[in-house]
Design a protein around this nucleic acid. Structure first.
Lengths: 117, 117
DNA sequence: TTAATATGCAACCAGGAGGTTGTACATGAG
DNA sequence: CTCATGTACAACCTCCTGGTTGCATATTAA
């Protein structure tokens, strides 16, 4: 086996990039927005607000937070601004978690072998 | 296919539970702690602090945040308190993201079929 | 016993997060 | 044209967060 190169998602810079993504998903209102966008497809702010328990302005703020994290993006159509998700950052977050699980398993494995010898 | 029951991770209560987990992972220092614990196994606070760029007390606080989110737990051994990760919440977060991806794919699929008809 | 090590607890602080209200502007419907 | 709809921008407020310092306490090592 080659010298353990920290599997891409565990880099300092990797964590530095993924932490903001988790932060963006770490608010219930925002996570709900993401969930709605994922199952309902692109939607206007007005439509997203109907069903949220906060003001339209609050929803707008949350959407911008998601945008800053790269999780969502908007495009103006007529008088509405339509929001949709960005796939890449969400996948990155997923890979990060998978990496953690994997390295965890590896650590347990090493421990087990160490104990058994 | 049966009537789309919102796949377990998309429940309002589901998001309500997973959002705090994401929030816990949404800080770079904390995410680094999690990464270290995942690859290095259980560790004391002193050991975790060496390598972090903040005070021991800051590390302690972060660990408690992780604990509140259920992501980590500690046990006192002698004069040190040893911290380790909890598997379940991290897996839950992973499933949440997988669910989002899946529902997203499904939405795109429905859209595609709708356009093609 | 004495000193060094590993934590815990509390007070304090600056800044950011989440939310609201109020106002102004653009655009589609009648 | 006129009005309702959909957003954008800005000011303001409260509370939580991430960090620090200082001091007390428990254990292990010499």
């Amino acid at each position: 086996m080659s010298a353990r190169r920290p599997s891409r998602g565990a880099t300092k810079r990797g964590l530095q990039r993924t932490a903001p993504i988790f932060a963006a998903l770490g608010d219930e209102t925002r996570l709900r927005l993401v969930a709605r966008l994922s199952s309902g497809g692109p939607m206007s702010i007005a439509r997203l607000t109907a069903g949220a328990s906060v003001t339209r302005q609050a929803v707008t703020k949350h959407l911008h937070v998601l945008a800053d994290a790269g999780v969502a993006c908007s495009s103006r159509i007529g008088r509405e601004s339509v929001w949709e998700l960005e796939r890449q950052p969400i996948e990155a977050a997923r890979h990060c978690l998978e990496g953690i699980s994997a390295r965890w398993d590896a650590a347990l494995d090493r421990l087990k072998k160490f104990v058994e010898r």
